[in-house]
Design a binder for these strands. Structure first.
Lengths: 351, 351
DNA sequence: TTGAAAGCGCTAACAC
DNA sequence: GTGTTAGCGCTTTCAA
């Protein structure tokens, strides 16, 4: 004998299954006495409504989904505790998850999460798509074909990722944030010779940040760099390597290294410490994102904080809005960032 | 016209719906040529299998669930950024979530998460229960009636929470961890007069930690404290208050404050700083849990780290095992903790 | 306010 | 290997 169903509850309560259903879906269309009968029958039987059956019949799951990159790369895991720890502190997705969960709950939805390595992003998304009413993709590059199929079936919002035509989209103010940070370096610290270390050529976020960096030079009337001084792949290792290379190649140190993200900046901190270059005295270093690790390194990293939990919350709002009106025009929302002035640029650590 | 279904795909591929189903559920029972026909028909149509229908027919959702307490208490949220930040850094659930997600994915399951305030834990659990094949409850007190109903329907594992008869259970080595920490204080730092600040009377975790504290005294041949010197409710505020009270009440300072968790210890650090008491010179302070915040306070908090991501992983393993054999005996697994010697006990900060 | 009945899209026997 | 055929447990008209 399986688990109790509406039939069992109905029989026990002496009503029809339709009434049982109504008690759960629209309680006020059922007379109070009847409702009580049903509820107590359900309680006695240990009835738990099946979400699958409900979802099939009503064509809605009551669940929102979030796909994000697998944060812990397998290498780090193999190398031991220190690196694993670093990986944990490098992930800003936790906050997005929390923001989404909270907002989803407010709207009566549960949250399904699924991480995936870059090469499996498509499968992951397709799998999640079948289980939810709406879906957010965080910082993942999904094959256009999958994105297309899925987004035709349900609302999809892209968070901090590659632009996708016709889809709702939320991102941080990459340009403005980097502009503010760079102006702080130039104006407040009087730094004129800055080297920008960018991300991969195909990263729109990193590109926007570089443009912010350029704009700060324009604002100050300084010569505008045409290209990043170097590029990395946004990992700690690549930041370290970029600095090593720059140190070896160039005769003269710039006054500051401006990185397209925190992880590379942290790698730079390691490299500079090894080479005996003192931050911020000899050279300042800045990042972007505001990952937990950025606070814990020494010196603490000056960076641009992305409003991660708000990213998650806004994602839910957008999904809910589109669920309500499937044909509303696609929107792109840009969330303001906040400059975190910490020790690595020469500012005192904040309270 | 709704979304494409197995019928549409079957028609387009010139096969039966059973074959379409087989292509997804057991691809190798279908001839390669047929499989290709089906797959390409699916692709052309933009077919996405409905998890609800699948779940209803197969009586399994392919999803595991996690219920945990709502971390951000509404007060903190209202009070502004600093407190909200503190709340974020105080939650150790992120790691559990990550651990569970990873392990679940390894087993082919997705993860559904749902937070809830203490007073809604039951509803939250019941709701999630209908959507998943197995369920973990993290540090939540759920009404026995709900726990009973749900656990009769599907596997439930309790993580770091109140004991529940007959259910699988995973916890950290509260006794052993506190014993090790306390012995470190007594043996390595030569501290004999220690004050333990406990948690609520009904917290089994806090109670076990106090017993570890007691045992360390026994081991050292010191008089064994019968009761905690004070109790708090495990919040930062209560730790602060406990220390203030102790400071006001007692003439003589103990050599060390041993707290039942990190958050109270952090509150103590604040209180002591205000009163001009220097940690660790005048008095040492220790916590328990290893929350992110414990690393970021000054001095960094010596504490006992719980293996949070392993808690999550083990939860999945237990659920999977029980899914495979519903009548295996309930097990209680205790995971080893690790002592984190940091500055607040007088040890140098670790690399 | 309640009941009867027709699906929702898929899986799983069971035949062929 | 593939097709036929019952359901899975619920929601939702439509009547009563």
């Amino acid at each position: 004998m399986g688990d109790p169903t509406v039939y069992d509850v109905a029989e026990r309560a002496g009503v029809s299954i339709a009434t049982v259903s109504r008690v759960y879906r629209s309680p006020d269309t059922v007379r109070a006495a009847t409702r009580e009968k049903v509820l107590s029958a359900a309680r006695e039987l240990g009835y738990v409504p099946s979400a699958s059956a409900r979802g099939l019949a009503s064509r809605a799951t009551g669940v929102l989904g979030l796909c994000f990159p697998d944060f812990a790369d397998p290498e780090a895991e193999a190398e031991g505790a220190a690196d694993a720890d670093e990986a944990e502190m490098s992930f800003y997705g936790d906050e997005v998850i929390r923001g989404m969960e909270r907002a989803a709950r407010r709207h009566g939805y549960a949250l399904l999460i699924s991480a995936a390595h870059a090469d499996r992003a498509g499968e992951s998304m397709a799998d999640v798509a079948g289980r939810v009413d709406g879906l957010a993709i965080l910082a993942q590059q999904v094959p256009a074909a999958v994105l297309d199929v899925v987004s035709r079936r349900l609302p999809v919002v892209v968070l901090a990722g590659h632009t996708a035509p016709g889809l709702d989209r939320i991102e941080a103010a990459n340009f403005d944030g980097q502009l503010e940070l760079t102006r702080h370096l130039i104006d407040d610290h009087g730094l004129g010779r800055l080297a920008f270390v960018g991300g991969p050529e195909d990263s729109p976020d990193a590109a926007a940040r570089f443009r912010g960096f350029q704009a700060a030079h324009l604002a100050a009337g300084l010569p505008m760099p045409e290209q990043p001084a170097a590029r990395g792949d946004l990992t700690v290792a690549s930041g370290r390597k970029a600095v090593m290379d720059l140190l070896d190649r160039e005769g003269e140190l710039p006054q500051g290294f401006v990185f397209a993200n925190d992880q590379m900046a942290v790698g730079a901190l390691y490299a500079l410490a090894e080479r005996g270059v003192v931050v911020p005295d000899d050279v300042v270093v800045t990042g972007f994102d505001g990952i937990p690790l950025s606070r814990m390194v020494s010196p603490a990293l000056t960076t641009v904080r992305q409003p991660m939990s708000r990213l998650g919350e806004e994602a839910v709002e957008l999904l809910i809005a589109r669920l309500a009106d499937r044909r509303r025009p696609a929107t792109a929302r840009i969330l303001p960032t906040a400059l975190a002035r910490r020790a690595s640029c020469g500012c005192a650590a904040q309270a």
